[in-house]
Design a protein around this nucleic acid. Sequence first.
DNA 1: GGTGTGAATGAGACTCATTCTCACTAACGT
DNA 2: ACGTTAGTGAGAATGAGTCTCATTCACACC
Lengths: 170, 170
Amino acid sequence: MGAPTSPSSRSAPGRRQAEADDDTMVDLHAAVARRLERHDHRYTPGRRHLVETLARVARPVTLPQISSHSDELPQSSAYRNLEVLERCGVISRIAGSADHAHFELAEPLVDHHHHLVCVSCGSLQDVHLDDELEALVDAELAQAAAAAGFTPTNHSLDLHGYCHNCEPDR
Amino acid sequence: MGAPTSPSSRSAPGRRQAEADDDTMVDLHAAVARRLERHDHRYTPGRRHLVETLARVARPVTLPQISSHSDELPQSSAYRNLEVLERCGVISRIAGSADHAHFELAEPLVDHHHHLVCVSCGSLQDVHLDDELEALVDAELAQAAAAAGFTPTNHSLDLHGYCHNCEPDR
DNA sequence: GGTGTGAATGAGACTCATTCTCACTAACGT
DNA sequence: ACGTTAGTGAGAATGAGTCTCATTCACACC
Ligand SMILES: [Mn+2]
Ligand SMILES: [Mn+2]
Ligand SMILES: [Zn+2]
Ligand SMILES: [Zn+2]
């Protein structure tokens, strides 16, 4: 059951925070490598760099944002590798309303959560809901899906509105 | 008060179904005209046609799907009018995963609902949830939003999976 | 029942995020 | 070392959606 959870796990007492982060990062890379191997793909430096950036920013980001975080990342390779990582279940793509798609680490590698979507600047932010509510939602969706002959895989639940820096116009 | 609800409202006893549908369509057009006037826009035949198609199909559709429903609809005018109707709160755009955006009548003109999203063919289907659950979700999202300095406007909740005609590959 | 003003239309040019192509390189197995 | 396969990156291509602009339409006022 060693799948690492969120990179922001609380550190054990007496351990420096940086050390704990390094540990979770090591675990993350191991988990990613396993998933890639399962699909007969290699964990190359370019892919490692993408995963590392996504883990560090800990919020959904666009490709330009990833590129800005560390330069010299060829666009075509980046998009290709994001696609590979997506097919291997390492990251997920959020297609939303913004002009660029957003990317984040996929669900088994980070824990289940949802997003605050700014309708003004298009930024995304993670938000976690109570497990009980999640269970209720899943139960009722499953029931509705069954009635429609629909086979569910997962749900998405976003809150749209104005982020901290984007006050609504009056 | 008088805002028309879903086009699929139960007809009164002794009334033919088609008659009731005509009535709700008349109400819908009146409501749309009001919204357009409020923004100093005219309810032209092209716009009326878009609204009529969206009301008839009663599920989110792409522009190619709209065009196929009745030919001779210039692409540039259609997109422009969809944008106008969106700004006036008549329709809403669903940017999702599919290559084309989907469009549907906006929330005050039809009642609040969510979507079953087929990850295979990209089709969308409406699904309605219990009001109690909706209230719970809104309450908890509002609380989380406040903690993040986020001003919410509305939520979206989709169930992803395989639709009736797209059995998952084994 | 003309006439002026601004909105609407439609054909096509254009944008630009993403994907594709292809020649080249790096890694793995034997 | 060698053959085979995966990965890389520069640039071309794709295509949904938007923009331009000349023309037409609808309304208001006279
Ligand atoms: Mn959830
Ligand atoms: Mn809801
Ligand atoms: Zn914002
Ligand atoms: Zn399907």
